[in-house]
Amino acid sequence: MVAQVITSGLLMGFIYALVAVGLTLTWGVLDIINFAHGEYLMLSMYTAFWLYSLLHLDPLISLPIAAFTLYIIGYLTYKLVVKKVINAPALVALLATFGLSLFFRNTAQFLFSPNSRFINESIVVDKKIELGTIIIGMPKLVASIGSIIMVFVIYYFIEKTRTGKAIKATAQDKATAQLMGINTEKIYALTFGISGAAAGIAGAFMSTFYSIYPESGLMYGLLAFVIVALGGFGNIMGALYGGLIIGLTEALGGYFLGTQFKYAIVFLIYLIVIQFKPKGLFGW
């Protein structure tokens, strides 16, 4: 039974990691707390739902569409909102993204009603793998394998490609990056786009096994904050390990202490870890 709980915690951990990678990018590069990040997840789940319900597209097939939609939403978030507040005092950007999250959440409620919706036709639905006593649901398995691949794709992109190095340079020192001929304006917009796309992919995967409603992203947004802070701002591998720790803590805490305490335990673990590593596990 404990093995089952650990497995399911790890699987969720990989998905959390992908959500958190999106958040850690905007946080690390622009030094902005994006309170609307959880809402990106929700918007992506609705995108997958409507493509399924109107065009009968399997969420796993329509995944690139959801990713692209959220890339655009992330890009526009930067161009229309974040760009205007980036030089303002730090809390103003937070004010703007918090307003944006209220706007997204309630627009979804206005347009799509507060009812929970489910996608019950997908190639992964109702399939499972049995490994001895451990039963793994196919939707979660596919989602977490997909998520871990995406985490490494983004990691590779940031570390190895020219654009990725430009993003890192901008994060470290904007003025110097500009002197080196990097168009930081473009980099910022791109970073926000990638951040949206990461949440978009995670959301599309989650839509196969999670109920879709306007507040779907709320708790995941909060967990992503904790994961990012746990891993260290702007650190992709930190977000991966942070995601795994939080996924495991949530599953084990829920199993041993009761599900009503699982988030309290998650937040407690963060507070304990941060005592020993005040800048996160991989912060500098």
């Binding site: 909102v81 205007k84 103003v92 703007a96 307003g99 706007f103 206005f110």
Partner: peptide, 19 residues
């Protein structure tokens, strides 16, 4: 949720134009 849509938008606008 129409009230919160308008409220959210106004918060964004104020933050953007009166930082």
């Amino acid at each position: 949720g129409l009230d919160l849509i308008i409220f959210g938008l106004l918060v964004v606008v104020i933050a953007c134009y009166q930082p």
